[in-house]
């Protein structure tokens, strides 16, 4: 009943080299006992390697292996009925190293097809699980990455560069008087010429 699926998961980001191989157990619930959900094992996710790729912050390939349990037809029917009866499908992810769990839910019509995103902190500690629309992968791991620092290096370089350039070219406004004020002198001259032409002509 256990099918072994080895899947290449897309690692959204990675910040530090990890030597740990976190293992998460996924449980789901589609029926309630009173008000408490009944948890059934759904899958076991092992994150085999989180590699550090400093140049490309966005993607690193890593191995995620999933062992998932097959659902019986009756369980399958119960899942399909959830959406019809307006109840929610709940998922619990347990971090097997510490034992703590996180819970998520969805009202989607086909919850087993949705992609799961496991959010981890930089040390591989499980923080939360999210349902995403169905995609290529079944499970995505998102590790918290470092926030951007104020970029002082490029700024300092640019300032030094500009300062050196400015020291080289010391431009002054030392064009001569005509160059600065030709806009005003030329119309004046034209006016004088016209009036001068008019006057002698008239006489």
């Amino acid at each position: 009943m256990i099918k072994f699926i080895a899947v290449f998961g897309l690692l959204v980001s990675c910040s530090e080299t990890q030597d740990i191989r976190p293992v998460f157990a996924l449980f789901h619930s589609f029926e309630l006992e009173g008000s408490e959900p009944i948890w059934m094992a759904r899958a076991k996710v092992t994150v085999d390697a989180l590699t550090h790729n400093p140049s490309n912050r966005t993607a690193s390939k890593a191995m995620i292996s999933i062992e998932s349990n097959q659902l019986t037809p009756e369980e399958r029917r119960k899942v399909d009925n959830l959406a019809l009866s307006g109840k929610r499908y709940q998922l619990k992810a347990v971090d097997t190293s510490t034992g703590h769990h996180v819970i998520a839910y969805t009202y989607h019509a086909d919850p087993l097809q949705q992609t799961l995103k496991l959010s981890l902190d930089p040390s591989g500690f499980l923080e939360g699980v999210t349902f995403l629309p169905a995609g290529r992968e079944q499970v995505i791991v998102d590790i918290m990455q470092l926030a951007p620092q104020p970029e002082t290096a490029t700024y300092i370089q640019r300032m030094d560069h500009e300062r050196r350039e400015r020291e080289k070219t010391q431009g002054q406004d030392n064009r001569n008087f005509f160059a600065k004020y030709w806009m005003y002198i030329v119309p004046l001259v034209i006016f004088l010429l016209i009036s001068g032409a008019g006057n002698p002509e008239g006489q």
Partner: peptide, 12 residues
């Protein structure tokens, strides 16, 4: 409403 972590980051 859904409990999804839209964005997470850390300052060391």
């Amino acid at each position: 409403v859904t409990g999804s972590i839209i964005y997470q980051t850390v300052h060391r």
